[in-house]
Design a protein around this nucleic acid. Sequence first.
DNA 1: CCCGTACTACGAGGTTTATCGTAGGAGCAG
DNA 2: CTGCTCCTACGATAAACCTCGTAGTACGGG
Lengths: 116, 116
Amino acid sequence: MTTVTSSRDLPHPAREEIRLEAVLHALSDPMRLQIVRELATDGGELTCSHFDLPVTKSTTTHHFRVLRESGVIRQVYRGTAKMNGLRRDDLDDLFPGLLGTLLGAAARQAGRLGGA
Amino acid sequence: MTTVTSSRDLPHPAREEIRLEAVLHALSDPMRLQIVRELATDGGELTCSHFDLPVTKSTTTHHFRVLRESGVIRQVYRGTAKMNGLRRDDLDDLFPGLLGTLLGAAARQAGRLGGA
DNA sequence: CCCGTACTACGAGGTTTATCGTAGGAGCAG
DNA sequence: CTGCTCCTACGATAAACCTCGTAGTACGGG
């Protein structure tokens, strides 16, 4: 049972290699924070093309790579599509509560800025 | 009772102007994260010169300014010294639990990397 | 008034970053 | 095989960032 999901493989940092500074830097970009927020509310995996960001496709690819290389998301090919998912398990293990608090803070700010 | 602490005043963002992205960006630099960690463990106010960072004085000034302009710390002159303190009240109000979780994550990583 | 201490302002250098456009590879439907 | 869709790689550009050194300001002590 070799469970081949795809042929192309993408480099991810191991759990112990994830650095807090890199995670914070990754999330300090509005575009990337938005991506992570959508991934969190969905809960599962989303394709790159699902996101409708106000930047070109090239730039979107760049942001996804920053998120992956910092250890925030996991990316895997499925056919021609590339699925993206939060590394919730790893992040919660390394930094308990961080992801949740961060998402809460982002939601709070979004409500404050965009809300009535 | 005019409680004049100093003549020079430094520009701080108001509480509602503090942006999560700016806070995360400020804390994504190892030097600044270190500063914030020391300020947190101390609890009170510390002078700039108290910190012994592996960079020049100019660079240290720069980092303190980034922290102030992002709303993470409050700076005030007291004589020739400049006192630095965390804006715990404002941050806790805007982003409940964020500062604590962030400091916890930083401590955890420091223990993991530097510890036995 | 002069000097020392504490911090800043400004400019420069080198790296990183965000963004784009074009060209191209990998998989799937005919 | 042909085409289509999804995504990537590369190069370019302009902005931002970290770092430094030098010169300078503000305050307090003698």
